[in-house]
Amino acid sequence: MQPTKKVDSYRFVDGIAKRVLERWAALPGETHVPWTPVASPLSECTVALVSSAGIALQSDQPFDPEIERRDPWFADPSYRVLPRTARTGDVQVGHLHINPAFAQQDLNSVLPVERLDELAELGEIGAAAPSHYSYIGYTLRPERLLRESVPRMVQQLREEHVDVVVLVQV
């Protein structure tokens, strides 16, 4: 085993954001953690991606920033489907808490659609799913996201026979 790295969660955040994130991490958390074992070798699994960056196809309805501007405690709770073939020039970023410039230069920095295809070509995963997903990760009121958006994402994951989901925080 190589020496173990400990990720410094606050290396890239300023003092106020660090104080907020440390506080949130210290709040009482969920005690029940669900578990679905990885049923097959990854080389046989279909893998989908989920990004919390609020990515939408430019041809799709954009995330609505006015929801958060009117009520800053949460963001647009909807989600968008991104086909496996989506590329950097096809998308826009709706998350108001990040610098969108990096994703706009290269979608793979936050939603590695092309890298996942490469792992499929290499045979390291069975397949990339036909669809990936994105929502806005900022919310202090997750109820509508969890009640309205996640079940529909789950339904499409089932329809596309997905086994494994990689969620990418932004």
Binding site: E30, P34, V154, L157, V162, V164, V165, V166, L167
Partner: peptide
């Protein structure tokens, strides 16, 4: 979001 997807029967990270 991850725990909901896991609870629905997908393996997630």
């Amino acid at each position: 979001v991850q725990r909901e997807i896991e609870a629905a029967g997908f393996s997630t990270i």
